[in-house]
């Protein structure tokens, strides 16, 4: 629990720091073309209010964390412990998945993503391939056929096509 407390302090402290930075540099990140005289009509009025809430409550949470005020985790998080390596690699895989869909098309990138993700999370038998194929095909059926969602034409395919 000690570790979670300090991590929580770092997390909320960091966000509240970012909020402060944004708050005091608002003239640089918001284009203030208009010279509104009324405070409430200024485009930074409401965001500044929100940022102030973040900053103040964030600091209060840091203090709470230092005082080791107990807090509840939700049910799923109580029952399991973080496996940062697997989660991080799944998130990276997700990033590659989104990039690859432009290259090799939705169907193939989904198939590849599912196979790699199943492999990473420990499903390494033949079930892997069968499941991945089934899931990616049904996703393709639902989204591309049924809902007619438009995906970019595979970039790689058109590249090869042009060089022909």
């Amino acid at each position: 629990m000690v570790q979670i407390h300090s991590l929580r302090a770092v997390f909320t402290g960091f966000i509240s720091l970012v909020a402060c930075l944004l708050m005091f540099n608002s003239d640089k990140v918001v284009s203030l073309q208009s010279t509104e005289t009324d405070l409430y009509r200024s485009p930074v009025f409401f965001p500044t209010l929100a940022l102030a809430i973040i900053a103040v409550t964030g600091i209060a949470l840091v203090i709470q964390a230092f005082k080791k005020v107990p807090f509840m985790l939700d049910m799923d998080c109580e029952d399991s412990s973080p496996k940062l390596f697997i989660s991080a690699s799944l998130l990276f895989l997700f990033l590659f998945y989104s990039l690859s869909s432009n290259w090799i098309g939705y169907l193939f990138s989904t198939l590849l993503f599912l196979m790699t993700a199943f492999f990473l999370s420990g499903i390494r038998s033949k079930v892997n391939i069968v499941l991945s194929a089934l899931i990616s095909l049904s996703l393709y059926a639902i989204f591309v056929w049924l809902l007619d969602i438009w995906f970019p034409k595979p970039w790689l395919a058109s590249l090869l096509a042009n060089s022909n």
């Binding site: 944004l22 990140v29 918001v30 284009s31 208009s34 509104e36 485009p43 930074v44």
Partner: peptide
């Protein structure tokens, strides 16, 4: 904002 300017 009132004028529809880009923010953040």
């Amino acid at each position: 904002g009132a004028t529809g300017m880009p923010r953040y």
